[in-house]
């Protein structure tokens, strides 16, 4: 059993939002709601869900880029909630992030060399200029950028290359954890495949632990070891990849899997789709009990009565649905 790198206990992140009128009291939108999980060294945890499910907020809350309002995040056993901003900043040497929009996340007035070197100027201040330059060239080579691009600016790069720059910046300090937030969804298919392969290669080479946030289950199937499915801020299923794809248990996971398009016309025609009615409810006014019950084909009266807790239903597979769990 490999070591636990990160342990998350009942983390909750809320945003204050307008009450809907000038004199209405402000309301709180709970984007992440009592999420708990353990991340093992070297594994890739996929976090999947639709827009508004809280997957990006969760990623940012773990790194305290957004301050969670409750819960604990234990980094190698240490609670990082109590760290001062300065201490937290230094911790981020070990935890880096890769963002969705590769161009927007690069400072347009900095050269590529300076962008990639920036984490070194913060975390490894003792390096000489020459050492820093050689580290930058090293990491550029690792991510497939040629060294002569060092003095160019972000706007000269395509989306795929810009994402390589973002990856180079994230891994130059040799972090233990990299949180990837939809790192390929802005890219064309042929370029997307290059970046996915690069991430897989880095994972093997450096033993990186990754949290991979995406709405795309087919990418999850490639890259994740375990997958967490979120719906309206809560975990509805957390399972080993093989279990999740072979036998998804939560009704939402099942619907999500059956809704994803398959690039094979015969399989597409033969497939039985589980059509979900309607749209996800507003996180400002979530349904009582299980938030999915308003769209769930299996919903019963009891689902409205209490929030569903995760329970183990098979080896390496937990779901938050008493209706399914009770029928197994």
């Amino acid at each position: 059993m490999s070591q636990t790198l990160l342990e998350v206990q009942d983390i909750r992140t809320e945003f204050p939002v307008s009450g809907g009128g000038l004199f209405q009291p402000r309301r709180r939108l709970r984007a992440v709601n009592d999420v708990s999980f353990i991340l093992r060294q070297g594994e890739t945890l996929g976090v999947v869900g639709e827009s508004g499910c809280g997957k990006s907020t969760l990623g940012r809350s773990l790194l305290r880029l957004i301050e969670p309002s409750a819960g604990r995040v234990l980094w190698q056993g240490e609670d990082i909630a109590g760290l001062s901003p300065e201490e937290m900043r230094l911790k981020r040497r070990d935890m880096q992030m890769i963002f969705q929009d590769p161009i927007a996340s690069l400072d347009p007035r900095m050269t590529i060399g300076d962008i990639i070197a920036e984490p070194l100027t913060v975390f490894e201040r003792s390096l000489s200029k020459a050492e820093r330059r050689s580290r930058v060239l090293d990491v550029m080579d690792t991510v497939g950028l040629s060294g002569d691009m060092l003095n160019r600016y972000p706007h000269e790069f395509s989306g795929g290359q810009a994402q390589r720059i973002g990856i180079a910046r994230a891994i130059i300090t040799r972090p233990k954890l990299v949180v990837c937030d939809e790192p390929v969804s802005a890219l064309d298919v042929s370029i997307q495949a290059q970046i996915i392969n690069l991430l897989q290669e880095l994972k093997r080479k450096f033993g990186l632990t990754m949290i991979f946030i995406s709405h795309d289950l087919s990418i999850m199937r490639l890259i994740s070891d375990r997958i967490m499915v979120l719906y309206l801020g809560r975990v509805v299923e957390l399972a080993e990849k093989s279990a999740l794809f072979a036998d998804p248990k939560h009704p939402y996971t099942r619907a999500l899997l059956s809704a994803a398009p398959v690039p094979d016309p015969k399989a597409a025609r033969a497939r039985q789709r589980i059509m979900l009615r309607g749209d996800p409810p507003s996180p400002l006014d979530p349904p009582s009990g299980c938030a999915f019950r308003t769209r769930c084909p299996l919903a019963e009266e009891r689902c409205a009565q209490r929030v569903q807790e995760l329970e183990t239903v098979a080896e390496g597979q937990e779901i938050a649905c008493e209706v399914v769990a009770g029928s197994l």
Partner: peptide, 15 residues
């Protein structure tokens, strides 16, 4: 180079 939801792939073949 297209990821598949219906089968396990080792890796993609990017262009």
């Amino acid at each position: 180079s297209t990821p598949r939801i219906d089968t396990d792939l080792e890796s993609l073949e990017p262009i």
